[in-house]
Amino acid sequence: MESPARAAAPASGAAAPRKLWPGALAMLAVPVLLLIFGPHLPSYPLRILDMILLYAVLGLGLNIIVGYAGLLDLGYVAFYAIGAYSWALLASGQFDIHLPFALVLLIGASLAGLAGILLGIPVLRLRGDYLAIVTLGFGEIIRVLMNNLDRVTNGPQGIARIDEAHLFGWTLSTPDDFLYLLVAMLVVVFLFVWRIQESALGTALSAVREDQDAARGCGINTTRVKLVAFAFSAFIGGGCGVVFAAMQRFVSPESFTFWESLVIVLVIVVGGLGNPFGALLGATLLILLPELLRAYADYRLLFYGMALVVIILARPRGLISRQYGPSWLMRRLGGGKC
């Protein structure tokens, strides 16, 4: 598994680390430790760990559009919902369709990506702010559809008795089955977003974030670049939705409210916008803290709102700022220039 290091190294050029293995090893430690110790956890903490990993992947996906391109997407949960309902409808008694998990994972993620492109076309050629309001509306519309297309989605009751997922002959039913799947997803998505950051696409997205007009003056087709980022982001959200539905084996519109989108935004704002490590840290804090503070559940959202304002005002870069990403770690541990 030295591929992550090699994948990112060439683009780093002059600032590349001399040795790749220390950084790669440090980063691999996290998934390896999770795989060794995770399955031994009791069921309840294991479920929480699964949720942390799921939100970390969601955070990594949303980061592409919010952290890299600097555009606010307030309806990320819509893509998550599209993925979840894909599995719920294509692998349950609802229409008596029972497609394999791997196929639905691809279908769900692709449908979400397609929705992202269709939604992005009218909005992304405009200035950034409109995306926030359009995605907010889109999230709401998807929820209205889930609630009212009774014949398809079963309305507010949701869809229960969803199939057990099987992946290449391996049954996914217990929380530790999903731990393996989620760790694998995390690694893949992490490498992917890191790769985006280091590639020309990442450079273009950063330019869009910093100064869209100047980026266009430098020859960047900002609309297309944003559209690609938005589609990637939606694709990952959709994939997470499929996994979520397979994990819960039940979906209903209630799981896909605006508050879910808000939590995912918070995951990356708290952790550090534009930093893949930030998504991991943010997801850990945001899933763990409410579990620890159950007695104050009523105040959870109030606290989230305050956290958002306070972090933006006092520490706008989040806990881990943008520059201390995986490439920095590779250089740091590999003896390159920092």
Partner: peptide, 29 residues
């Protein structure tokens, strides 16, 4: 009008980003 938050060399790389989005995607993968 520089891209203030980016490194100097990245600022220059912006001007060299391949124009075709297809090649950007291929590049990313």
């Amino acid at each position: 009008r520089l891209f203030d938050g980016m490194s100097v060399v990245k600022n220059l790389e912006v001007a060299l980003v391949p124009p075709r989005v297809g090649s950007l995607i291929a590049n990313t993968f």
